[in-house]
Simulated assay, not measured.
Amino acid sequence: MNLRFFADQCVPNSIIKILCEADYEVLVLKDYIPIESPDSIVITKAQELDAILVSLNGDFADIVTYPPANYKGIVAIQLRNHPEIIPQLMERLKNYLLVNNSMLYYQGKLLLVEAHRIRVRE
């Protein structure tokens, strides 16, 4: 199965476009639930859609509130108010996704994606 992502409402269109151009399936939050939905509904919808959640929302990087073991995968994009790093960050993420191209790989993992590294928490 090709990788499927569920893009939180805070994910810029440029990131969604880059993932789509790399031939990944990207489901956009506004097409499934109201954009003001609480985080608990967002993560639940990602699970229902059998998708890896992609978000800039720092709450999803909190392993106490959202233990990675309970989810099909969370990709937390770490822009830190620097949208100019999106191309570099996404190049790093795309290379990582090419090597780890199975949905099962992301089960129970949180990826903290930064421009210079990707940290994996389980």
Rank of each mutant, 00 (worst) to 15 (best):
N13K: 14
N13P: 03
N13R: 12
N13Q: 15
N13D: 13
S14L: 09
S14K: 10
S14E: 13
S14C: 06
S14P: 00
S14Y: 07
I15Q: 08
I15D: 08
I15H: 05
I15Y: 05
I16N: 00
I16F: 03
I16R: 01
I16Q: 04
K17Y: 10
K17Q: 11
K17S: 14
I18R: 01
I18K: 03
I18S: 02
I18Y: 01
L19Q: 03
L19C: 00
L19W: 00
C20S: 13
C20V: 11
C20I: 12
C20R: 15
E21P: 03
E21C: 02
A22L: 07
A22N: 15
D23I: 03
D23S: 10
Y24D: 10
E25F: 10
E25V: 13
E25L: 12
E25N: 14
V26D: 07
V26C: 04
V26T: 06
V26Q: 06
L27D: 02
L27R: 07
L27T: 01
L27Q: 06
V28S: 02
V28G: 02
L29T: 04
L29Y: 01
L29N: 02
L29A: 07
L29V: 05
L29P: 01
K30Y: 15
D31E: 12
D31Y: 11
D31S: 13
D31P: 09
D31Q: 14
Y32D: 07
Y32L: 08
Y32S: 05
Y32W: 13
Y32G: 04
I33V: 14
I33Q: 09
I33W: 05
P34N: 12
P34T: 15
P34F: 12
I35L: 11
I35F: 09
I35G: 10
I35P: 07
E36M: 10
E36Y: 14
E36N: 13
E36R: 15
E36F: 14
S37C: 08
S37Y: 06
S37H: 04
P38L: 09
P38G: 04
P38T: 05
D39E: 08
D39H: 05
D39R: 06
D39G: 07
D39K: 05
D39V: 05
S40L: 08
S40M: 07
S40K: 10
S40Q: 13
S40C: 04
S40F: 10
I41P: 00
I41C: 04
I41R: 06
I41V: 15
I41W: 03
V42M: 01
V42D: 00
V42C: 00
V42L: 00
I43F: 02
I43P: 00
T44I: 02
T44M: 09
T44G: 03
T44W: 06
T44D: 12
T44F: 03
T44Y: 06
T44H: 09
K45F: 03
K45Q: 12
K45C: 09
A46G: 12
A46W: 05
A46F: 08
A46V: 11
Q47D: 12
Q47W: 01
E48R: 04
E48L: 06
E48F: 01
E48Q: 09
D50Y: 15
D50A: 14
D50E: 15
A51F: 03
A51N: 06
A51D: 02
A51S: 13
A51I: 04
A51M: 09
A51E: 06
A51T: 08
I52W: 08
L53T: 01
L53Y: 01
L53D: 02
L53E: 04
V54G: 12
V54F: 14
V54S: 11
V54R: 10
S55V: 13
S55A: 14
S55D: 09
L56F: 11
